[in-house]
Amino acid sequence: MSSLVHEIRNQLAVAVANVEAFRDGVLEPTPARLTAVLNALHQVDILLREIPRGEPQR
């Protein structure tokens, strides 16, 4: 459970850092970077499905 949460945070870190960089004009939102963000969000979705039902949510 804790490693699942950890991996979700890692994927969110990819998305958050990149989108913030796009907003600040620090990095260009190239197709490759947008794809990386999208993939990270897909990973979050997949990981969330692995959280067992009935488990207390944190």
Partner: peptide
């Protein structure tokens, strides 16, 4: 700094 973080 905890992930996810703000790069700023």
């Amino acid at each position: 700094v905890g992930k996810p973080f703000s790069p700023r």
